[in-house]
């Protein structure tokens, strides 16, 4: 969990090699099909298939274990919350199908269908979006934004923030270690007292980082940042036929799955 390149995890997978713009369009496709399923079709099997496709995209790009743990935990949590809240939010009829022992929650077939479809509606797009960040260099994302005519100074803020993410994490860990050696136990005590202890972490961090803001600003000036209205990119993003093909393939896959499942596996 060093985040050496921000969220980017270097690699040579299929997703690493496609244009970031194609990945963004892919994520929007996932979002569109998920919305359609989550609101109109409500087929958990189809939702599960989209979910599986984004999971395959994530796993094929070989992220660090941090991401596996994160999305593993998140998938369980969202399924749980969805099952807990959706049936209670919308009163539904249907055949009673499932009773959770001990807790006594009753689920009809409709309630289950709704809860599962909604859970996949939440999960698939966020994993797709995470995959973009995991497989794209911050610099390439910056270029994609600039090519889409975002003002480049503003587009640069999140990119620069991603660059300094590992620096901040290292700084915080250093400070936490230093405070621990002075017997500041961050993991003990009630929640308010634990929060209060974080002041001892954040004050030195902030003072150091704010001084750095000045240095960073001067460094950006020294590098001529913002000197020209437009800038070149020495490694230019090129949209290749390969990117188009991948997009068509995914869209076709989602469409065909939709037709097949609603026709033959209607629940």
């Amino acid at each position: 969990m060093s985040f050496e390149y921000g969220l980017y995890v270097p690699g040579r997978s299929v997703f690493h090699r496609i244009d970031p713009r194609a990945k963004i369009i892919w994520a929007l496709t996932v979002l569109a099909f998920s919305i359609y399923n989550g609101n109109y079709v409500m087929n958990p099997i189809y939702g599960g298939m989209i979910y599986a496709s984004v999971l395959i995209a994530l796993i094929s790009s070989k992220p660090t274990s941090f991401w596996y743990k994160l999305f593993g935990g998140l998938s369980v949590a969202i399924l749980f919350f969805s099952l807990l809240f959706w049936p209670a939010s919308v009163p539904l009829g249907g055949k009673p199908l499932l009773v959770i022992p001990v807790l006594g929650w009753k689920y009809t077939d409709l309630a289950l269908r709704l809860a599962l479809s909604k859970a996949f509606l939440v999960l698939s797009p966020i994993i797709a979006i995470a995959t973009i960040f995991i497989t794209s260099r911050p610099g390439d994302l910056f270029q994609a934004l600039v090519k889409w005519r975002f003002p480049y100074r503003l587009a640069y803020i999140p990119i620069l923030a991603l660059r300094f993410l590992p620096t901040v994490i290292v700084e915080i860990r250093t400070i936490i270690d230093a405070q621990k050696s002075r017997a500041l136990e961050l993991e003990k005590g009630s929640i308010p007292s634990r929060i209060r202890k974080y002041v001892a972490v954040f004050v030195p961090l902030m003072i150091r980082m704010m001084k750095s803001a000045l240095e960073l600003g001067v460094a950006l000036d020294s590098k001529g940042f913002g000197a020209m209205k437009t800038r070149t990119f020495s490694k230019e993003l090129r949209w290749r036929i390969y990117d188009t093909l991948i997009l068509i393939m995914f869209t076709a896959l989602y469409a065909v799955m939709l037709i097949v499942i609603t026709r033959f596996l209607a629940w």
Partner: peptide, 20 residues
């Protein structure tokens, strides 16, 4: 550049602080 640096570092501290 100074405004950009401030915004970026605030974002990094906020985001990184939440992780660390």
């Amino acid at each position: 550049s100074i405004d950009i640096a401030i915004a970026a570092l605030v974002a990094a501290i906020y985001g990184g602080g939440l992780v660390a």
